[in-house]
């Protein structure tokens, strides 16, 4: 099986602070790889580097055998990378349906003039995208809310909408940044199923998630970050027994407790 995405020696510093340092791993088609670690370990920063939002200071990102390091996010989208955000990035000024259609941008985009004059070609493109979006919304259970302003949706539904939008790109690699955060147990399980299903169809999934039960349940492979560095890697059973991992989490817990005591 050929490697879908490989990350090698990735690092970045912010104002002299080493946010991520020398992180590497590889992702196979159909695999669910989770990146875990205490708060501030650099998980989201890592995602932002892989998806082209930050320019890494060091290292390489290889997608489908090609170097895509620091490539613009829209070009990565063309090559089959798609993602969601920890702090939702929903198009608040559009309806739920239009948010989903926006995921089909690369399919529906065409001649500007055709759009300006509303030529049949333009309308046909838009219609195809709309049909696809409606199907996707049905799949994540949001078809009834299609015409609602996206800003009016509950947090859990917005999370699902973002996943739907990311799936609309028909990606090869999907980066999910805390998809279950703020969701209740039922919603978490739904998302859980959805991720497994998407992986089964051959998509490689990169997951950042705080819900450890979910991570242990669905991941094939886990990478553990602490203070921006990879401290462990392996299947769920191995990683959960790793003393360095346990120590890192305990230290973070202690820190959080101390912080809570101060506040």
């Amino acid at each position: 099986m050929s490697t879908l995405l490989s990350v090698d020696g990735l690092g970045i510093t912010f104002g002299g602070l080493r946010a991520v340092h020398d992180v590497g791993f590889s992702l196979q088609p159909g695999e669910i790889l989770s990146v875990i670690g205490p708060n501030g370990a650099g998980k989201t920063t890592l995602f932002n580097m892989i998806s082209g939002i930050y320019h890494p200071g060091a290292g390489k990102v290889i997608l489908d055998g090609q170097d895509v390091t620091a490539m613009r996010p829209d070009l990565l989208a063309r090559r089959g990378m798609s993602r969601t955000f920890q702090n939702l990035q929903i198009f608040q000024n559009m309806t739920v349906l239009e948010n989903a259609i926006a995921g089909y941008h690369l399919q529906e985009t065409g001649s500007f003039m055709a759009d300006l004059f509303s030529l049949p070609a333009s309308r046909a493109r838009a219609r195809t995208a709309k049909d696809g979006a409606m199907e996707l919304l049905a799949r994540v259970g949001l078809d009834r809310a299609a015409e609602t302003e996206a800003g009016n949706l509950s947090y859990g539904k917005l999370k699902r909408l973002e996943i739907a939008r990311a799936l609309a790109l028909n990606p090869k690699v999907l980066l999910l940044d805390e998809p279950a955060a703020g969701c209740n147990a039922v919603e978490t399980e739904e998302i859980d199923h959805m991720i497994a299903e998407v992986a089964k169809s051959g998509v490689g999934i990169l997951l950042v998630e705080h819900d450890m039960k979910m991570v242990m349940r669905i991941s094939n492979h886990i990478v553990v970050l602490d203070h921006g560095e990879k401290i462990a890697e392996g299947d769920p059973a191995t990683v959960s027994q790793n003393p360095a991992v346990i120590a890192a989490y305990l230290r973070a817990e202690a820190g959080a407790d101390a912080g809570a005591a101060h506040a």
Binding site: I53, F91, Q92, I101, L106, T109, F112
Partner: peptide
Amino acid sequence: VSPTGRALRALHGSEIAARTVGVD
């Protein structure tokens, strides 16, 4: 209502999200 208009409104709503769905 066209794809172009949607892309424009998307980048208005969230430039970062618009990029990640492929909007140049």
